[in-house]
């Protein structure tokens, strides 16, 4: 079977073509699963989230709009949200509760080929951040914790958490914007 373009695949998904889902899975499952493992740290839970992600796309392909950006960005956003929902579900058992609402965020707009290099740069920039700044960004984004949750978790004043997160993200933004302009 030949690999179709993303847009063609999405059109076929809308017509409930199971082969289209199979192709889509082959194209994106590694990225979806990698993100789920990174967030959950548990391969069994990550498999569940990966399956739920593709089931969600299968049932709701009409929710993706091309003018909102790259399909992969949309898919990974669903993965992240499902993974964090999973963490929160587990956390609720121990009496904690978190919130998240970013389904309607705008998508990335650059062509995929250029993005591969940019993600590598971004990863490098993250590695270069001071540990305390990287730590709060990871807890916020990959664990779905709010700034207040992080302050409690790290036993650190809320103001300090806010400052670390802001400084870290400002550095990433400055470097990211710079690489885009090169």
């Amino acid at each position: 079977m030949t690999t179709s373009s993303e847009q063609d695949l999405i059109e076929r998904l809308r017509q409930q073509d199971t082969h289209a889902l199979s192709e889509l899975y082959d194209l994106f499952s590694s990225r979806v699963y990698s993100l789920a493992v990174a967030i959950l740290g548990d391969t069994m839970a990550a498999q569940e989230v990966t399956q739920d992600t593709f089931m969600k796309v299968w049932k709701n392909p009409h929710l993706y709009h091309r003018d909102e950006g790259r399909f992969a960005g949309w898919l990974l956003t669903i993965t992240r949200r499902l993974a964090i929902d999973h963490i929160r579900h587990e956390n609720r058992r121990s009496g904690k509760s978190f919130s998240l609402d970013d389904e309607n965020l705008p998508e990335l707009r650059d062509p995929w080929q250029d993005e591969q290099a940019r993600w590598r740069d971004l990863k490098h920039m993250m590695d270069e951040l001071p540990l305390e700044q990287r730590e709060v960004i990871v807890l916020a984004y990959y664990r779905g914790m709010s700034q207040s949750d992080i302050a409690l978790y790290l036993d650190t004043p809320l103001g300090t958490v806010k400052t670390r997160l802001r400084l870290g993200m400002e550095k990433l933004r400055a470097a990211f914007v710079e690489t885009r302009n090169i």
Binding site: S22, Y25, D26, S29, S30, R31, Y33, S34, L35, V37, A38, T43, A46, Q47, T50, Q51, A72, G73, L76, T77, T79, R80, L105, E107, L108, E115, R118, W119, L122, K123, M126, I137, Y141, Y142, M169, L172, R173, F176
Partner: peptide, 20 residues
């Protein structure tokens, strides 16, 4: 854009074949 980029920076893993 940066937060979306962070979704792409995780180490690559492959799901088991049975999942598909």
């Amino acid at each position: 854009d940066i937060s979306r980029g962070l979704l792409e920076t995780v180490p690559q893993r492959f799901p088991p074949a049975a999942l598909k």
